[in-house]
């Protein structure tokens, strides 16, 4: 007797689960748990990391991220407005900028800024400024496109209502359009913040002093010092301490937006 469609689907799903379970069991049996435990869960090494990993590394990660995000957001807003401008050269500049910085790896931007700027202008920029510029320049390209989409998502009637009350184009933008646009793009901007948190690990390319280490670099340094992978695990967990609440925030914001529609 041929199997019914539903029965056949159930059998196929059962086989899939079976394969998955077998794979996990085999991997668990093959792995050297003793080695793993000593490498990743060395309590003595973990203890040695504190409190520096919080007071220096975690704080630096947050500082670098916020610096880059703040600068990127401001520049992104300017770029978004240029991109929407009725003046063609502004549009061309914005498009060129966005395409350029979206298209090249952030890693190259960091190297170019870290070494190029001091060469070109014979100035030694403060590390925080360099970090802000590097992270912000790349982040701005993405945020500009997000903000532009947000501005365009505000209904045309809003501009018309503002203008018919005698507001200038600029005043209508500042008082009416941009506040609404930011509500719309809050979830994607928060995503951008999460991405920047992780990208802040690239600052090691700028050549950091010890007290400037952020999480990833701190972990890598401690790995060499202790010959243990435990710092990597701890650093990873601390990234999650930052990014998981942000992810939660994105979901809450999205739910709120969905409800408001």
């Amino acid at each position: 007797m041929p199997l019914s469609r539903r029965r056949r689907a159930r059998i196929i799903r059962g086989v899939q689960y079976g394969v998955l379970v077998v794979a996990v069991v085999v991997l668990a049996l093959v792995a050297d748990w003793h080695q793993l435990r000593t490498a990743f869960f060395d309590v003595e090494v973990a203890k040695a990391l504190f409190p520096d990993i919080i007071t220096t590394a975690l704080l630096n990660t947050i500082l670098y991220t916020l610096l880059g995000f703040g600068f990127g957001l401001a520049l992104g807003l300017v770029l978004a407005l240029m991109r929407l401008s009725s003046v063609p050269p502004y549009r061309w500049i914005a498009i060129t900028y966005i395409e350029f910085f979206r298209g090249i790896p952030a890693l190259l931007v960091f190297i170019a800024l870290g070494f190029g700027v001091p060469l070109a202008f014979e100035v030694a920029l403060d590390m925080n400024v360099t970090v802000m510029l590097s992270l912000g320049l790349v982040g701005a390209a993405y945020m500009a496109e997000t903000i532009r989409a947000g501005i365009q998502a505000v209904p045309k009637g809003q501009t018309e209502a503002a203008r018919s009350l005698g507001m200038s184009q600029g005043r209508a933008m500042v008082s009416i359009i941009i506040p609404q646009a930011f509500r719309i793009v809050l979830p994607p901007l928060t995503n951008e913040l999460i991405l920047l948190t992780k990208d802040s690990s690239l600052v090691y390319l700028l050549g950091l002093a010890l007290n400037q280490f952020e999480l990833a670099n701190f972990g890598r340094d401690a790995l060499n010092e202790h010959k243990s992978l435990t710092p990597i695990l701890i650093a990873g967990l601390l990234y999650l301490v930052i990014t998981l609440p942000l992810g939660q925030l994105v979901r809450r914001l999205e739910a709120r937006t969905a409800k408001a529609r």
Partner: peptide, 15 residues
């Protein structure tokens, strides 16, 4: 425009 009030079909209040 300050001297001309306008009311739209779709209200266009600032939400």
């Amino acid at each position: 425009r300050r001297r001309i009030g306008m009311v739209f079909q779709s209200f266009n209040l600032f939400p």
